[in-house]
Each structure stands twice: as structure tokens, then as C-alpha cells.
């Protein structure tokens, strides 16, 4: 059974349809990458899975359970954690408080303050500082750490690399194996094709709200990906 299964779901902003009839399945323990150009609907998809946006038609199942009707916080309780686009750390909270609030639902597991600090030692050094004064890369690490504090079964990562220097991006991506090794299934959203292909077991491409391609990185040709990504 898939950990996450989306079947025929659409999503709207008012009258504007952002997602058309999306179906996808993510297996437990898998690293699944969703690529697509700006505005393709990647963030919308993650927000729909997290429950910030309603799914219309179709359905979303998590570990076999229909979660469409559950509010976001109930999904978090089941182990669905989103690292949102733009990090969205809490500026009024210190770094450590951001992590502590990440554990709000009290799910037990591998991750705790100590393990997150091991994963991102810089955060430990900045523990008492306001999250607002961190650099972009540090904020991204904090946003990931905050999500890990929930001990998620499914981690949704929205454009971790956005606006960061290549060396910082590499550092963050280097942590993915450790996260996966702890048993967390990861759904990564990226505009950066190479980055996504490098870490994912499976990849799918979104184009104007529709899935235009899916497969294992090794099976996909550059041409096929370019066509699916740019729609040419």
C-alpha cells in the first residue's frame, strides 16, 4: 500500500483551476521528486496534500486512510509535515522555540531537539537568537528542522533551494539521506531539475496543473524531461 495516494484531485483558487485531475502514489520510504516550472502548480499540490487548500473531486489517502476531510492540524498529527515555500519560520520565536513549536503535536520518534541540532549544528549555535536574523540557508535548515520535530512519516519539501547559493543548497541536500534513513518518506518539489533527479527514487513533472511525465530518473531521457517541463 502506498503511504500517500492522490487520485483524480483538482484544486482551485476561486474560479481559477490550478490542478487538473492529479493522480500520484508515493511509497513508504521513497524519495519522490515533483518538478515543474514556475507556476506549474507544485506548491498548490503540496498545500492540497497538507490540507491548506481543499481538494475537489478525487481523493487523498494517507496510509490507506482518507484524509480529504481532515483539517491541516489533524494531518500533521498523522505525520504529514510541510516545509513551505519561502521557509515561513516564526520571527517572534527564537530558533529553539521554532523547533519546539515544531513538536507541537507531540509525535514521538527519532527526531528531537538533540538530533535536529546534530543534523544542523549551526542551529544549535544560534539557538537563542530570533529566527528573523538568520540567513536564508539557516532559515531553510530551521524550517526543515521544525518539520522534523513532528517526526513526520511524510515530509513535504517545497523548493528548498529557492534563492540559496549552490554551496548552501548542496549542504541542505546532503542531509536528505540522513532524513530518509530515519524512515521518513520525502516528497520534494523543485524547479531545479538536476537537483531533483540527483536525489529522487522517482520523479514526476507538472505542467500547467497536469502531470506531464512520471518515471525513474534513469528511465527518463533529457529530451522527454525537457518536453514535459517546458511543454514543447
Amino acid at each position: 500500500m502506498s503511504l500517500l495516494e492522490v487520485r483524480g484531485a483538482s484544486s482551485f483558487y476561486g474560479d481559477f483551476q490550478a490542478l487538473y485531475d492529479i493522480s500520484l502514489a508515493v511509497q513508504e520510504g521513497e524519495r519522490f521528486a515533483m518538478i515543474g516550472s514556475n507556476g506549474a502548480g507544485k506548491s498548490t499540490l503540496l498545500r492540497m496534500i497538507a490540507g491548506l487548500l481543499p481538494a475537489r473531486g478525487g481523493g487523498i489517502r494517507f496510509d490507506g486512510q482518507a484524509i480529504d476531510a481532515l483539517p491541516t492540524h489533524e494531518r500533521v498529527k498523522l505525520g504529514v509535515s510541510l516545509v513551505p515555500e519561502g521557509r515561513r519560520v516564526f520571527p517572534s520565536l527564537s530558533v529553539e522555540e521554532n523547533l519546539l513549536i515544531g513538536g507541537y503535536r507531540g509525535r514521538r520518534g527519532h527526531w528531537g531537539l538533540g538530533r535536529v541540532y546534530e543534523l544542523f549544528p549551526l542551529l544549535k549555535e544560534r539557538a537563542r537568537r530570533s529566527a528573523a536574523v538568520l540567513s536564508g540557508g539557516e532559515q531553510q535548515a530551521l524550517a526543515i528542522g521544525r518539520a522534523l520535530m513532528n517526526n513526520p512519516r511524510l515530509l513535504l519539501l517545497d523548493e528548498v533551494s529557492l534563492g540559496l547559493a549552490p554551496v548552501v543548497i548542496r549542504e541542505l541536500y546532503d542531509r536528505l539521506p540522513a532524513i530518509a534513513a530515519a524512515g521518513t518518506t520525502v516528497l520534494i518539489v523543485e524547479q531545479n531539475i538536476d537537483q531533483a533527479l540527483g536525489v529522487a527514487d522517482r520523479v514526476a513533472c507538472l505542467l500547467e496543473g497536469r502531470i506531464s511525465l512520471a518515471g525513474r530518473p534513469a528511465e527518463l531521457t533529457r529530451e522527454a524531461i525537457a518536453a514535459a517541463y517546458f511543454g514543447i
Binding site: L52, P71, P84, R88, F90, S92, E97, I101, Y104, R146
Partner: peptide, 21 residues
């Protein structure tokens, strides 16, 4: 934790929902 949740929600309600509030 309640206080942190209050401050977090005040900062960014949607991000607060994402952490399970």
C-alpha cells in the same frame, strides 16, 4: 508551549497550522 503557539499564530497563521496548531 501555549505562549509559543500564540506568538507563532500571531506571526503567521498558516505556518502555525503547518506545525499542527
Amino acid at each position: 508551549q501555549l505562549g509559543r503557539a500564540l506568538r507563532a499564530t500571531s506571526d503567521d497563521t498558516e505556518a502555525a497550522r503547518i506545525v499542527g496548531i
